[in-house]
Simulated assay, not measured.
Amino acid sequence: YGKLGYNYATHVFDVQAKMIPNFETNSLDVELSTIDNAPVYYTLDGTVPTVSSTKYDGKFSIRENTEIKAMAIREGGNTSKVLSEKINASKASYKPVTLLTTPDPNYRYTGEGMLVDGLFGNSTNYKTGKWMGFKGENIVAIIDMLEPTEISTAQIRNCVVTGDWIFDASEIVLESSDNDSVFTVVNSQKLLDANTTHWSDITTHTLSFDPVTARYFRLTVKPTVMPAWHPGKGSKGYVFIDEISLN
């Protein structure tokens, strides 16, 4: 197209990535592609790829903290925009997760695996497919660590855009169990939103506690009742989360 002098959207020739947690191998499966099957080169250490980097030849798996960078290098040395994605692995990453709450169908995307895929939302744009949204309900998720595992922190991240009725969580509760039946509270935290006007941000909430060993962990995230200054006052807001991290 360039040689013919045409104007065109160059982003359609960028590298696309599909990253899905594999609960059988407990890893993140990564697939890279381009619209024209151009050669793709990638790195796993955050450096910009060159033709000397690893050439993509099929799906590969990741289990640890990684920064993927990938780029298509076409004939004549023409390069695409660099695709960049950080993997933030925790002990919960790629472990089977059961979601006991139904997400809003518009914001379910690839399903419960999103909550343990190690991928963070990079902005308050909650429509990117990185944030899972729930409308006015307690979010309840059970993570099967597959074997007794010691943890001392639990972390979630919320996307807040109050102008779109999306609020921060009001409370987080972590419980543990050895049999997925009887759960004991490990720790909890109530959160207070003192803002009196609209705001948007990514919030991070961390529970810290003495080490606990268990196979199953149940996390409950409670929504906020929208305040008097908001048009939706008295109703429960949306809650959007991208990841549950246990360490």
Rank of each mutant, 00 (worst) to 15 (best):
Trp199Lys: 02
Ser170Glu: 06
Leu219Trp: 08
Leu191Val: 10
Val212Trp: 05
Leu174Trp: 11
Ser177Tyr: 11
Thr213Glu: 05
Arg215Pro: 09
Thr162Trp: 03
Val160Gln: 07
Ala169Asp: 06
Thr206Tyr: 13
Ser177Lys: 12
Thr184Gly: 12
Asp210His: 12
Asp164Phe: 15
Asp180Cys: 10
Ile202Thr: 04
Asp178Val: 09
Leu191Gly: 03
Asp193Ser: 02
Lys190Asn: 04
Thr220Gln: 12
His205Pro: 01
Trp165Gln: 02
Thr197Ala: 01
Ala169Val: 05
Val185Glu: 14
Arg218His: 10
Val212His: 05
Asp178Phe: 05
Glu175Lys: 15
Asp178Ile: 06
His198Tyr: 14
Val160Pro: 06
Leu207Glu: 07
Val182Tyr: 09
Ser200Gln: 13
Val212Met: 07
Val221Cys: 00
Trp199Tyr: 13
Ala169Trp: 05
Ser177Gln: 12
Phe183Arg: 14
Thr203Gly: 07
Ser177Pro: 13
Glu175Tyr: 11
Asp210Ser: 15
Phe183Ser: 15
Thr204Asp: 06
Thr197Trp: 02
Thr197Phe: 01
Asp180Gln: 12
Thr203Tyr: 09
Ile172Lys: 00
Pro211Thr: 15
Asp201Lys: 09
His198Ile: 00
Gln189Cys: 08
Lys190Gln: 09
Thr203Glu: 07
Glu175Ser: 15
Ser170Leu: 02
Thr184Phe: 04
Phe217Asp: 01
Val173Cys: 11
Ser181Glu: 13
Arg218Val: 04
Asp180Thr: 09
Asp201Gln: 08
Ser188His: 14
His205Tyr: 13
Phe167Glu: 01
Thr196Ile: 08
Thr203Gln: 12
Asp164His: 15
Phe217Gly: 04
Val161His: 11
Thr196Arg: 04
Thr204Glu: 12
Gly163Ala: 15
Arg218Trp: 11
Leu192Lys: 03
Pro211Met: 14
Pro211Asn: 15
Trp165Ser: 05
Val185Tyr: 00
Trp199His: 10
Asp193Ile: 01
Glu171His: 07
Glu175Cys: 14
Ser208Ile: 10
Ser188Leu: 13
Asp168Tyr: 00
Gln189Met: 14
Gly163Tyr: 15
Val173Ala: 07
Lys190Phe: 09
Leu192Trp: 07
Arg215Ser: 09
Asp201Pro: 00
Tyr216Glu: 04
His198Asn: 12
Thr196Cys: 00
Ala169His: 08
Ser170Tyr: 05
Thr196Val: 08
Thr206Lys: 14
Ser200Arg: 07
Leu191Trp: 05
Val160Cys: 06
Asn195Val: 01
Val161Arg: 13
Phe167Lys: 06
Leu174Glu: 08
Phe209Ile: 11
Val185Gly: 09
Val161Gln: 12
Val221Pro: 00
Ser188Val: 14
Val186Lys: 02
Ser181Phe: 05
Asn179Asp: 14
Thr213Asp: 02
Val221His: 02
Ser208Gly: 09
Ala194Trp: 01
Asp168Val: 00
Glu171Thr: 06
Asp193Thr: 00
Ala194Tyr: 03
Leu174Gly: 11
Thr213Asn: 03
Asn179Gln: 08
Thr204Tyr: 02
Leu219Arg: 04
Ile166Ala: 08
Val160Gly: 02
Val221Tyr: 04
Asp164Ile: 12
Leu191Ala: 03
Arg215Gly: 12
Val212Ile: 13
Asn187Arg: 15
Asn187His: 14
Ser176Gln: 10
Arg215Glu: 04
Asp201Phe: 02
Asn195Asp: 11
Ser176Arg: 10
Ser181His: 07
Asp201Val: 01
